[in-house]
Design a protein around this nucleic acid. Structure first.
Lengths: 200, 200
DNA sequence: TGTACATCAGTGAACGCGCGTTCACTGATGTAC
DNA sequence: TGTACATCAGTGAACGCGCGTTCACTGATGTAC
């Protein structure tokens, strides 16, 4: 951490860009680092002068977007890996939810960049590649029921909201007497993405 | 805003405490004010010197807790008013959800204090009076189904998570193509808090 | 083969800002005698 | 009835900090002629 870095050879200046993004990513790994993701902290972590970050990013939003892009790929991979090869639709949805909750719990800082504002109010990634994660959900739901694509879309969003709510509430209100995650997950999956689709 | 305040009469020093809490509350009303809730901003809004806040609050967490207490009473009132007098359990749950989503949308700053960290990472209100809001949910669910209290508890938490997820995601990702709120609400209510309680 | 010049990957130093918090002080109002 | 004193509701001035960002510069490497 913060060791001095040696200058990149001529023509390889773009390497610093990756170093900076990885430094930001590393800072998010640590617990307290969630809101402490400042430009200066990132350059410190990368072992470089504060102003060097402007060689590659016009401002803070641009840096955030780069971190977002890096992590979203990983997140979608985790979800894909967790669900692939599971034929039973209910089991696939449960596996998806388990992986989702687990990622949120183990990487609170990264999760905040993906679906929150990460200490930068008003920041929003320009292209929501979060849609890729949502596609997995919608497909799994569609496999389980026979109603239209619209209903599957709505159910996917509702289930997503439930998972997101659980991740963020458990993170921000740890002292609440939470029922077991597996119970809550089953309630969400069996309720929102049921085999049938009749309302009461 | 920031007009000079006249000193309270002797013996009425505690009045400043209310002024400060109300000033903080007012700052949360404004859109940009969510993360800008600083001690100095609050004293500025109250028309008082920055250090005067320490006459009544030991530190920032204490001020946050005071705002939390003020607003939670109001929030529970809104939910209670929205649901009282509605006999049909499903309609009562829908009314609850509508009021919840509406409050979150109309008061993003206040909602953040109630259920987020409000720009103070690690802050958590000592006694979660959020339980009062949850009680309303649990009772409404219990009226709708015949299974045990434990199942109603789990369902109430799951439904809460869904509502919270919708509020925060729509706030932080406004450019996402959200399905109509009423549709999502019906999906959550009819899924999680169904009349019967069988899993698929 | 040598040299003037351009490019590149950064750095040195500084800017103005708002923040949370501390310490010593003030000036009006009440109280004891 | 007057005065010394205590209390109370604040303020003046300042602290050290980290922040995002700007401007001018450096020193090594390559290129043109």
């Amino acid at each position: 951490v913060a060791t001095t870095r040696e200058r990149n050879p001529r023509g390889q200046g773009a390497l610093l860009r990756d170093d900076l993004v990885r430094a930001a990513d590393r800072l998010l790994e640590t617990a307290g680092g969630e809101a402490d993701l400042s430009m200066r902290a990132v350059t410190r972590e990368a072992g470089v002068a504060p102003q060097s970050i402007y060689l590659h990013f016009a401002d803070k939003r641009e840096l955030m977007s780069a971190v977002y892009a890096l992590r979203f790929g990983e997140f979608v991979d985790v979800l894909t890996t967790a669900t692939e090869g599971i034929a039973d639709p209910r089991e696939r949805l449960l596996a998806f939810g388990r992986a989702y909750l687990r990622y949120g719990e183990e990487h609170p800082g990264h999760y905040r960049v993906l679906f929150g504002t990460a200490g930068t109010p008003g920041w929003e990634p320009e292209r929501m590649s979060g849609l890729a994660a949502l596609d997995l959900l919608r497909d799994a739901i569609r496999d389980r029921r026979a109603d239209g694509a619209d209903a599957a879309d709505g159910s996917a969003v509702a289930l997503w909201a439930g998972l997101h709510g659980l991740v963020t509430l458990r993170r921000d209100r740890p002292s609440f007497p939470w029922p077991p995650a597996e119970t809550l997950l089953a309630t969400l999956v069996d309720g929102i993405a049921r085999a049938d689709s009749t309302a009461s």
